[in-house]
Design a protein around this nucleic acid. Structure first.
Lengths: 207, 207, 207, 207
DNA sequence: AATGAATGAGTTTTCATTCAT
DNA sequence: GATGAATGAAAACTCATTCAT
């Protein structure tokens, strides 16, 4: 459940000043990921978080101003983690279609590993609509850029539209929902990504 | 905001016996759509619903057993309305690809008209996970069936897979999010549906 | 401890609509007078008030929005009661000096009877400074008017100044503090009022 | 805001041993005067005091045992300062009436300079009732003694009563409230003291 | 002496649900 | 059926005080 990364994001306004404090902050974030994933934002309780983290209730407020605040911190933590996972998978040089296939495959693996991400991102729609919208707009823009690059290189059709990026993202998200979250053991990320990629290849590729 | 249809769904266990009761029930459902759409399930309050409906707080329990109950009634009300909108749009005889285009176009119009549907369906993930899952599985199955029909008629590729249905649904949902919900005035449902449909046509159509 | 008067002041925004509600509101106000008088605003608790009133904790919020709100309601209740007590004592026709003597005497009796008034008014300085200031400014103005009337009738010096009204009020308040609140059994309101009145008579009376 | 005087009152049980400690103690007391004056006892926080003082939270307890303790130290600091201001104003030889006039004038100036004194003394009624009562009883006794001296010297009426002292103190306090605390710029301490003193002169002076 | 993290008891407030009229 | 008052469990949040470094 550890979302890796350093425990004290730069923008955090109650940054710990000691090593001990840094550890406590990390424990709280990890505990919050579990608690929110299990119960959802509203059913989750601060005391549930601190209990899991093994710290006193009051200590929560040493690091966060409210339940909202830790939720927001968690969402950006996760957006960051998803991005990192994608970047790692896309390290080497690849063709445009290959990129999309690998990206989807990596995302499916990541979601299967961190199922709580769906609940938490979806709940952001209610808890912090701005960050919810930003989350998807950022990803769509990233995809859109990749598609334009593919068009420029001649591998994809020249008439790439923003709607294509959103369509692609929607596909990916729902395939993740169907297989990574609701899937039953036997499915294969590469196979799913392959089926989707064939659709994209024909749909957007140059013949 | 009126979700049309008769006021007393068959499965409702506290069906009103009088005409006056029927009107009160309808007022409550309409008020709930607004309240839940505006605040989300948890921030919404029964008293907010009854205030909007113009009835006394206590009267709520004459028609619903709980907050959950009215929410569930609303979700099925809406699923029903979406289905009805689709059915109406798909009345005449059409080819497989045309069906998908018209269905998406109708859905985009419907969502633009009833923006609260996204919030409410999404929130079902937390309030009533089973109905959330059922909602999407039902739609996916419907799409899957249509694709199989298209394959049988020879218009689509023969190797249709369930993943194709989920991919298609994801596209539609995210295009709705981007344009019907977050869009700014100028967009055209038919154009969006056209872009998506071209992708599907190449991706799944027989050459 | 009952502050008499009707239970539902006109300006109250959560006025009860039934007789039963009216009784509950009255019980809450009376209980609050005791609780605030005994513990002061900050040490007083809502649950203490409802326990004394014999109603459920939640019922408090049927009538008041917050601890502040009931405190403010109480202060105006009391200002009103003090004014009423004074008016009753000053019913018949009297000379200017006699008026001041009777007013002080009545105030001393009232304060002895309702010792909590000092704590509550004084605490308003912190809880609701505006009403604290208004309370004293209103009384000072009332006194000032009476003194001007006395000057007009020729019984008092013609050069009455606002400062005289504040001086008189200060005398009264501190004599109340010394005798009505901190006094030990044996004191006599009329005697105290007499001593003060002689001072006023010489100080402000026409020779 | 500095209440002058040496930083370590004799009765203080945690007297600092070093010069540095003495400075920290002084900073805490000055910060507390501002914090309590601004927010009142209950809304004031230890962390607010240490933040203003520029020291760490924990350091507070090196010098005071509790929030109450520093409040009490502050009240006695202020009582002391008021007394000192009066003593300085009353240095030379004066008649009984002149003494009262000068004392009031000096008090008005002092209060205008240190407006927080009213809030803090008044709040003592709730935080430390004994010291509140003692504060006023001590002052009343001091005034009473001066009036008796005036009677003995023949300048004042022989039948001086304790109630006269309390009446005088009440006048002074409320004139201070009206002019020093709530007054708007233009008032003159000597003029106010003059009006009050004329009242006292006629009321208590020998004709 | 100084620092700042940790503690947890205590209080306000909300609101779904029940009930008497 | 309708009304609106009553209930009380549950949770967020504050902050004086303690403690480890």
């Amino acid at each position: 459940m550890e979302w890796g990364g350093p425990a004290a994001p730069a923008e955090h306004d109650k940054a710990p000043r000691t090593e001990r404090g840094r550890r406590t902050l990390r424990k709280l974030l990890d505990a919050a990921a579990v608690e929110f994933g299990e119960h959802g934002f509203h059913e989750a309780s601060i005391s549930g978080i601190t209990r899991r983290a093994g710290v006193a209730l009051g200590s929560f407020y040493t690091y966060f101003d409210s339940k909202d605040a830790i939720f927001r911190a968690l969402v950006s933590d996760m957006s960051e983690a998803v991005k990192r996972a994608a970047r790692e998978a896309l390290a080497g040089p690849m063709g445009a279609l290959e990129i999309e296939r690998v990206a989807l495959s990596a995302f499916l693996r990541f979601a299967a590993e961190h199922k709580e991400i769906y609940r938490i991102i979806d709940e952001a729609e209610f808890v912090d609509p701005a960050s919810y919208r930003l989350h998807y707009e950022t990803i769509a823009e990233r995809i859109h850029q990749r598609l334009r690059d593919g068009a420029a290189s001649g591998e994809l059709r020249p008439d790439i539209h923003e709607a294509h990026a959103w369509a692609l993202m929607g596909m990916n998200v729902f395939l993740g929902l169907r297989y990574a979250i609701w899937g039953q053991g036997e499915w294969n990320p590469d196979a799913v990504a392959g089926v989707a990629n064939e659709l994209v290849a024909r749909g957007l590729g140059r013949r």
